[in-house]
Amino acid sequence: MTTIASLEDKFYQTIDAEEKIEPKDWMPDDYRKTLVRQISQHAHSEIIGMLPEGNWITRAPSLKRKLALLAKVQDEAGHGLYLYAACETLGVGRDELLDQLHTGKAKYSSIFNYPTITWADMGAIGWLVDGAAIMNQVPLCRCSYGPYSRAMVRVCKEESFHQRQGYEIMTTLAKGSEEQKAMAQDALNRWWWPSLMMFGPNDSVSTHSEMSMRWKIKRFSNDELRQRFVDMTVPQAELIGLTIPDPLLKFNEEKKGYDFGPIDWDEFKMVVNGHGPCNEERMAARLKAHADGEWVREAASAHAARKSNSESRLKTA
């Protein structure tokens, strides 16, 4: 007889053996819920993440930069779709997911609630925000849930250009005129701390981490990944002559990594709770895009219905 306990045993055996859980396999309710929450937040972040960069497509300084930015934003739409599709394998509908985003019930990454006020912000986003995202996402390729892990493999493969194009923008500006260099430094100053916040709360207070590690959804703790990001990024800033805006930043010989100053978690909470500089603007833009697309969806449905009617008439004739 199959009991919940035996199903649970089998589930944990699969997890411990580093094998994947697939959509039709039995899984604990909380595992499913955790995945739906995480994957949908991730999908929403890709979709909202298009907005700050979309802001600069028409004002990119050259055709090359414009093509790269367009391709990057298009990738983000694609990544949102891979992730929504992965999330739907857990039994939640696309409309339900979009509703959760549109009603504010579901969250997206807070980083996208900061404004993109200069061209250098495109550089800083690619370099820092995508850099931090990649740091988070590479371990997710080994996540225990098959569809999520496969989606992440595609996302990571495509995203490696995002970070490089951002760093190239920063490098070019940093080597440019005084004004351009100042612009790059200003963007770094504004994006550095929010990028560190992307890794989530400190391990000591992180609420979801322990079970996610047990389920092998998560492989490394928030603080571990944050540390790696700092260690990777600081030399990159130095190389192009930019200064990380942290007076407490200092290489620690003992741990072979950088010590850095405290993160302003009050700011993080404020932005998560809807009071960041652009929360309202982002939601308004998303809702408008959805409403403006309504007639297209209606027309496509009407077209599909008419075609299928005329096909069935032909068959019965």
Binding site: Y82, E158, A304, K307
Partner: peptide
């Protein structure tokens, strides 16, 4: 390679081209 929603098969094919064959 994955899945997507579409109003009919023709749209599914077009969207699959955009979503899954950008490279």
């Amino acid at each position: 390679v994955g899945s997507l929603h579409a109003s009919d098969a023709a749209m599914a094919l077009e969207n699959a081209r955009d979503v899954y064959t950008r490279r």
